[in-house]
Computed example of a mutant assay.
Amino acid sequence: MKKKLFTVLLCGALAVSAVACKKEIKYKASDLVELGQYKGMEITLNNNYEYTEEGFDAFVENSIQQLGIFIPDDSLTTVEEDSIVNVDYVGSKDGVAFDGGSAEDQMIDIANNSSATQKTGYIAGFTAGLVGHEVGEEVAYEVTFPEQYNSPDLAGQTVVFTFQINYIANAIDSKDKLTDDLVAEKIPDYTTVDEYLAALEEKYKDNLETALESDKETAILNSIANGNIGTVEKVPEDLLQARVDMIINMQEKQYEAMGTTMEEYATSAGYDYEETIATLKKNLEESTKTEIILEAIADAENIKIDDGYKEFVKNIYTQMKYNNAEELYSDFSVEGYDGRRYFELAYRTEKALDYLVENCVVSFEEPPLVEDVEVTDDEAVQEDATEESAE
């Protein structure tokens, strides 16, 4: 997904408290920055964005593995340390099944002590007792929950899990193992292998294009931050304070929901609150410099609010669970700088970044090679000793 500059400037926060605007903060971006040559700016990328069969094959294999498709293998009858096993299980404490401790048709990964499909881990020892048992067996053994488990009734408690071993499975982890029947049964919206692979090819090409555009943006933003197309000697203090106020208000609203304040939380975590605010202000000064440079480019290129702004701001307030733009603007208003102005600037600087991406000159270079590190005899001996002690 394409990076959005305004999300960087928001620092990942979710909402702010409404603050009535008083004296409006005024400045002219072109007075604060002396722009250099930004049209046709040169950037260098070292990733490979070209379609290759090797790259596509790796993408296909990873995509198939992420699907988590497993099929029974009747030739496998004994659970091994690296088996994928389908089970039903019931957890009981003092002979009584407890809530959330039972499940059916679960595919578990013995080696990783995790769900084979969801990749989520189990508590220590949950799957180990199945090793060596046969398909069709019922197996029961004790497992102890960790002291810090999120359920007070189970934290630190020893319970009994009873497993029914249904079958041992093989993973479908490459395109060679796919069949039309498997695709139709296991992969929604597709009925044949060819149809699925064709869709993956389109996705792979789209990913390459998206990666190229994203990396262009990153390289341009880095170039701006390094002062290659303009420098801002000093951010106006009132503008910088407005950005600081916005972030503090964002954070305070979140901490208020937790029954505390930003200062109380920082202090309890061992941080000096004043230093925390000073660091925040310093970081915001750098991001605001980038904002000012892009605003100056937007002014120079006569980039204005157009019909695309409505969709832009709608996407934001919808994602942030607001009912409309006015609610968003209200919550993002701070003294001297109202929310509408903030998001309109975000839109214009976003389009200025798009302009730079569209007009940049890209050169590509091979990524640096990682040289093999020679291991001395002493290091090899020490490594062997470490492995033996671990065993």
Rank of each mutant, 00 (worst) to 15 (best):
Leu182Tyr: 03
Ala116Pro: 11
Val159Tyr: 02
Glu138Phe: 06
Thr192Ser: 14
Ser174Ala: 05
Tyr141Phe: 14
Leu182Pro: 01
Asp180Ser: 07
Pro146Cys: 06
Asp189Glu: 12
Glu213Lys: 10
Gly125Thr: 12
Ala184Val: 07
Val131Glu: 12
Tyr204Ile: 00
Ala184Met: 11
Glu202Leu: 04
Thr192Glu: 03
Ser174Glu: 06
Asp176Cys: 05
Gly136His: 02
Ser214His: 01
Gln106Asp: 09
Ile220Ala: 02
Glu137Tyr: 01
Lys177Arg: 04
Asn150Gln: 14
Ala128Glu: 15
Ser174Phe: 03
Leu212Met: 08
Asn112Gly: 14
Thr218Ile: 09
Val160Lys: 13
Ile110Ser: 12
Tyr196Phe: 15
Pro146Asn: 05
Gln106Lys: 10
Glu137Thr: 02
His133Ser: 08
Asp105Phe: 07
Gly156Glu: 01
Asn166His: 11
Glu213Asn: 04
Gly101Trp: 02
His133Phe: 06
Gln148Val: 13
Leu221Val: 15
Tyr141Ile: 05
Leu154Cys: 08
Gln148Ala: 14
Ile187Met: 02
Leu212Ser: 02
Ile165Ala: 05
Asp181Lys: 14
Ala124Gln: 15
Tyr167Met: 03
Val139Phe: 03
Glu137Ser: 12
Gln157Met: 15
Gln164Ser: 14
Ser102Asp: 11
Ser214Ile: 00
Thr210Asp: 15
Thr120Leu: 15
Ala169Ser: 12
Tyr122Phe: 15
Ile165His: 00
Phe163Glu: 10
Gly121Arg: 12
Ile165Gln: 01
Gln148Ser: 15
Asn166Gly: 09
Val143Ser: 03
Asp189Met: 12
Tyr149Ala: 08
Leu212Cys: 04
Leu212Pro: 00
Ala219Phe: 09
Leu200Met: 13
Ala128Tyr: 12
Phe98Thr: 08
Tyr141Met: 03
Glu137Leu: 00
Asp176His: 09
Asp215Arg: 10
Asp206Ser: 15
Thr191Glu: 13
Phe163Pro: 08
Ala97Phe: 04
His133Tyr: 04
Thr218Cys: 01
Gly100Ile: 08
Asp176Lys: 13
Asn166Ile: 14
Thr127Leu: 12
Ser115Glu: 10
Asn112His: 12
Ala171Thr: 05
Asp189Gly: 00
Gln164Cys: 02
Glu134Gly: 01
Phe161Val: 13
Glu138Met: 06
Tyr204Arg: 06
Glu134Lys: 15
Thr158Leu: 10
Glu202Ile: 05
Ala155Met: 06
Val143Asn: 02
Lys175Val: 04
Ala97Cys: 07
Asp109Phe: 06
Ala169Pro: 01
Phe98Glu: 04
Val139His: 00
Glu137Gly: 02
His133Gln: 05
Asp180Pro: 11
Ile110Phe: 10
Phe145Met: 00
Asn166Trp: 07
